[in-house]
Lab assay of single mutants.
Amino acid sequence: MASQGTKRSYEQMETDGERQNATEIRASVGKMIGGIGRFYIQMCTELKLSDYEGRLIQNSLTIERMVLSAFDERRNKYLEEHPSAGKDPKKTGGPIYRRVNGKWMRELILYDKEEIRRIWRQANNGDDATAGLTHMMIWHSNLNDATYQRTRALVRTGMDPRMCSLMQGSTLPRRSGAAGAAVKGVGTMVMELVRMIKRGINDRNFWRGENGRKTRIAYERMCNILKGKFQTAAQKAMMDQVRESRNPGNAEFEDLTFLARSALILRGSVAHKSCLPACVYGPAVASGYDFEREGYSLVGIDPFRLLQNSQVYSLIRPNENPAHKSQLVWMACHSAAFEDLRVLSFIKGTKVLPRGKLSTRGVQIASNENMETMESSTLELRSRYWAIRTRSGGNTNQQRASAGQISIQPTFSVQRNLPFDRTTIMAAFNGNTEGRTSDMRTEIIRMMESARPEDVSFQGRGVFELSDEKAASPIVPSFDMSNEGSYFFGDNAEEYDN
């Protein structure tokens, strides 16, 4: 783990906690998980779902989305002020799938948001429990990260689609708070800032007046979040320049895209947490497990152990491969979309394939898809080993990566060399080191050039047997250095459309 220093740990961010010791953190995270579980059980009762239907990941996603929508204050306010045809701002819903006479049927349900809020609060001892809501947002974000390569979004903001390893959390809503900021990748933060800068260039009043003052505060806050992700002084200094700019424009845009590229080699610290679907927490609570009393951590053995003992089902389209669908969801559960496939294969105990080789589309089923041909199958979400999630980018030494994705962002704290394609990355730096950030740029390029592919990161860190909950005997895996390590390699994943 990167030293926490003055930073709060993510469990504290996750639970809005002030400084807590490890036991208190485990208890408050457990409380959050228990609340999600209780809410899910109650919703299944309301909807009269069978046990099997309640364990269907598509039903879980609909129920999670309903509660997130019920608590989305800004959108609710907007919907009330701008009524649109056929949208009731006070209601929320989605597809629920039921097994009827041996076939899967889709039923569109509609609930009062007020009623959903009441059920959620009741499951969370009367609190709004925003930490639990954020947790579900991060699960949705991790699922998107594993399912889609955001080529269009990258290109629109002047970045290269091969930089997708920097895009963790790119679909997280803005209201996801400190826990959300911690899991956002460098590219995601750059993209958010670039969008602001572009608006400022096109709209003279963007930075002016009372609204402009708020915009400015948001801009500086985002700059500080991004600065905190960088691990070298030169990158941090460049972020200070971007933040202090009187009138952010093209120079800042250039600096930010430069920094994003540099992060492929001088990786930023991005938190990883295993956020599971509500249909995993519900049955665990129903079986009598007391998360608050037992304590829970999002970055240790607990999620692995929970998945070892969970039964989750998914709808499967006619030509999809259930094992591939399982891999997709497994990666999402562990926030591992940008991790090295060699490491993932070792931990999972079966070969993890790149996205383009998977015969599976996303987990969600569109409303126009034919239910007649839908089957369902068990998702295999178990693992051979477990490993500690990392909050750091690993040290800054790398190795060759593949054509589709030119770097990785480690999820697990496991000893290995970190793949990246130096030639491709360095070719993108057209040696432009003039301007006010020239000395920093020169320094950053120097550090990137001296990074050695064969150097090892996370020295001495290994994986653990599932029986080793105290992480007492690390097993340090050895990897084939020459092997392909990137998930979005030469990829044809669908595009994420909101």
Score class of each variant (00 low, 15 high):
residue 60 S to D: 08
residue 220 E to Q: 13
residue 103 K to G: 13
residue 437 T to Q: 13
residue 13 M to V: 08
residue 201 I to R: 00
residue 184 K to R: 15
residue 57 I to T: 08
residue 196 M to L: 15
residue 419 P to V: 12
residue 473 S to P: 02
residue 306 L to M: 15
residue 407 S to V: 00
residue 80 E to V: 03
residue 348 K to I: 09
residue 230 F to M: 08
residue 101 N to P: 08
residue 228 G to N: 03
residue 273 K to N: 08
residue 276 L to A: 10
residue 291 F to I: 10
residue 306 L to S: 10
residue 63 I to D: 03
residue 288 G to Q: 08
residue 35 G to L: 03
residue 58 Q to T: 01
residue 95 P to V: 01
residue 22 A to N: 10
residue 79 L to I: 11
residue 227 K to P: 01
residue 27 A to D: 04
residue 197 I to E: 05
residue 252 E to G: 09
residue 141 S to C: 15
residue 154 L to I: 14
residue 146 A to P: 07
residue 387 A to H: 01
residue 19 R to I: 01
residue 8 R to Q: 10
residue 132 G to K: 03
residue 37 G to K: 07
residue 64 E to G: 10
residue 477 P to F: 02
residue 41 I to Q: 06
residue 393 G to A: 14
residue 151 T to G: 03
residue 221 R to L: 03
residue 164 C to L: 01
residue 389 R to C: 12
residue 238 M to C: 10
residue 120 W to R: 10
residue 273 K to D: 03
residue 180 G to Y: 05
residue 366 A to G: 15
residue 40 Y to A: 12
residue 366 A to K: 09
residue 341 L to T: 15
residue 352 V to M: 14
residue 367 S to Q: 12
residue 350 T to N: 03
residue 335 S to G: 14
residue 488 F to E: 08
residue 359 S to R: 06
residue 405 Q to E: 06
residue 207 W to E: 00
residue 143 L to Y: 07
residue 251 A to T: 07
residue 8 R to G: 08
residue 343 V to I: 12
residue 189 M to A: 12
residue 99 R to M: 08
residue 358 L to V: 09
residue 157 T to G: 02
residue 496 Y to P: 01
residue 269 S to D: 08
residue 180 G to C: 10
residue 22 A to R: 07
residue 33 I to G: 04
residue 151 T to S: 15
residue 80 E to S: 15
residue 264 L to G: 00
residue 246 R to Y: 03
residue 42 Q to V: 08
residue 40 Y to W: 10
residue 277 P to S: 11
residue 129 A to M: 12
residue 148 Y to P: 00
residue 300 G to S: 15
residue 315 L to R: 00
residue 92 T to N: 14
residue 100 V to M: 07
residue 341 L to S: 00
residue 397 N to A: 11
residue 492 N to E: 09
residue 11 E to R: 02
residue 191 M to Y: 02
residue 90 K to W: 02
residue 4 Q to I: 10
residue 418 L to R: 00
residue 439 D to P: 01
residue 111 Y to E: 08
residue 276 L to Y: 09
residue 340 D to S: 15
residue 100 V to G: 05
residue 77 K to R: 14
residue 268 G to F: 03
residue 136 M to C: 14
residue 74 R to H: 08
residue 243 R to Y: 02
residue 389 R to I: 00
residue 316 I to N: 09
residue 198 K to Y: 12
residue 132 G to A: 13
residue 77 K to N: 12
residue 259 L to D: 07
residue 318 P to D: 14
residue 325 K to Q: 11
residue 404 G to I: 03
residue 332 A to L: 03
residue 108 L to N: 08
residue 293 R to H: 11
residue 51 D to R: 00
residue 311 Q to E: 03
residue 417 N to M: 00
residue 471 A to Y: 03
residue 276 L to I: 14
residue 476 V to M: 14
residue 33 I to S: 08
residue 133 L to N: 02
residue 457 S to P: 06
residue 160 D to L: 01
residue 462 G to M: 03
residue 437 T to H: 06
residue 101 N to K: 11
residue 497 D to I: 11
residue 21 N to V: 00
residue 385 Y to K: 07
residue 200 G to A: 12
residue 297 S to E: 02
residue 190 V to E: 09
residue 304 F to M: 04
residue 15 T to M: 15
residue 421 D to C: 06
residue 229 K to D: 02
residue 116 I to P: 01
residue 423 T to H: 00
residue 330 W to Q: 01
residue 308 Q to A: 13
residue 228 G to Q: 02
residue 124 N to Y: 08
residue 317 R to F: 02
residue 133 L to E: 02
residue 254 E to C: 05
residue 110 L to H: 12
residue 231 Q to T: 06
residue 362 G to I: 03
residue 26 R to A: 03
residue 138 I to L: 15
residue 375 E to K: 11
residue 171 T to F: 01
residue 44 C to M: 11
residue 221 R to A: 08
residue 426 M to L: 15
residue 9 S to N: 09
residue 230 F to N: 04
residue 320 E to F: 05
residue 461 R to E: 02
residue 342 R to W: 15
residue 470 K to E: 12
residue 392 S to N: 12
residue 474 P to H: 06
residue 416 R to H: 12
residue 65 R to P: 00
residue 41 I to K: 00
residue 329 V to A: 07
residue 95 P to H: 14
residue 341 L to Q: 13
residue 460 G to A: 08
residue 231 Q to N: 01
residue 83 P to Y: 06
residue 32 M to W: 06
residue 452 R to P: 05
residue 375 E to S: 11
residue 449 E to S: 11
residue 49 L to R: 03
residue 120 W to I: 04
residue 338 F to H: 13
residue 375 E to V: 11
residue 249 G to D: 11
residue 408 I to L: 15
residue 299 V to Y: 08
residue 241 Q to V: 05
residue 346 F to M: 10
residue 25 I to F: 08
residue 315 L to K: 00
residue 302 D to T: 06
residue 14 E to T: 04
residue 213 R to K: 12
residue 400 R to G: 08
residue 422 R to G: 09
residue 359 S to Q: 09
residue 74 R to D: 05
residue 115 E to V: 08
residue 369 E to N: 09
residue 268 G to E: 09
residue 173 P to H: 11
residue 494 E to Q: 08
residue 414 V to L: 14
residue 330 W to P: 01
residue 150 R to P: 04
residue 49 L to V: 15
residue 212 G to T: 13
residue 425 I to C: 12
residue 156 R to K: 09
residue 334 H to S: 00
